[in-house]
């Protein structure tokens, strides 16, 4: 047990570094979830409007973010866009942007689905008391659809958090990135270091995502 890799975690600055990396990923995820969520509600509302052109454009946007793998999106935004547009964003910002746009795209679909499943009666009785369209959405349709969209939103949020582990690919200092560095620096001393480092990362992600999936399940029931 003298060479057990677990010691690696607690050696020197390793644990704070792992947690620091985790914090950066969480910050990316947090901003993406909040900003993307708000943008997603807005876009979801627009997608319930009759305007064909608007609906087509927003649909295109959704499908783009849904079809293109997140890794490719990250590369695209980090390596290709800056070169062709001559602008250089720090890695964490690029990641935040990509995840926000992704969150907004997926959220808009959830919001739209929930909004159109509010019964037509509710629309009629809202209009019948003289509400205008934005009042109808604000006081009647959006509050009623929140409950309907919560389970799917929770799933989306937990997917977003999980996927932030990809950030290592565009060299954002994230948990896995730090993990990699720790493993490499200690390969001689702790041959099983990789197991423990990835193990800890797994546990950290699990601790963050599990409450969300529990909550999602509970919400689906009632």
């Amino acid at each position: 047990m003298a060479h057990s890799g677990i010691n690696l975690i607690f050696e020197g600055q390793n644990l704070p570094r792992l947690l620091g990396g985790l914090w950066i990923t969480i910050r990316v995820a947090l901003i993406a979830i909040i900003a993307g969520g708000v943008l997603g509600i807005f876009l979801g509302v627009l997608r319930t409007f009759k305007n064909r052109f608007l609906r087509f454009i927003l649909r295109l946007y959704l499908e783009f973010f849904r079809i293109v793998p997140t890794v490719v999106l990250l590369f695209l935004f980090y390596y290709i866009l800056p070169k062709s547009m001559n602008l250089n964003l720090p890695a964490a910002e690029v990641a935040t942007l990509v995840f926000t746009l992704w969150m907004a795209a997926e959220a808009s679909d959830i919001v739209r689905g929930a909004l159109i499943s509010v019964p037509q009666h509710q629309v009629d009785s809202g209009l019948a008391i003289g509400l205008n369209r934005s009042q109808l959405y604000y006081y009647v349709l959006i509050p009623q659809s929140l409950k309907l969209m919560l389970p799917a939103m929770m799933n989306l949020i937990s997917r977003i958090i999980k996927t932030t582990s990809l950030l290592l690919l565009i060299s954002v200092l994230d948990v896995i990135n730090v993990g990699q560095q720790i493993i490499e620096a200690n390969q001689k001393q702790y041959p099983q270091g990789a197991f423990w480092v990835y193990g800890v990362i797994f546990v950290l992600y699990f601790l963050i995502c599990y409450p969300f999936s529990l909550l999602a399940k509970k919400l689906q029931k009632d």
């Binding site: 009666h121 509710q122 009629d124 009785s125 809202g126 019948a128 006081y139 009647v140 509050p143 009623q144």
Partner: peptide
């Protein structure tokens, strides 16, 4: 209307 169409959120 025929259906009880109160707003359930209020």
């Amino acid at each position: 209307f025929q259906s009880y169409d109160l707003f359930p959120n209020l």
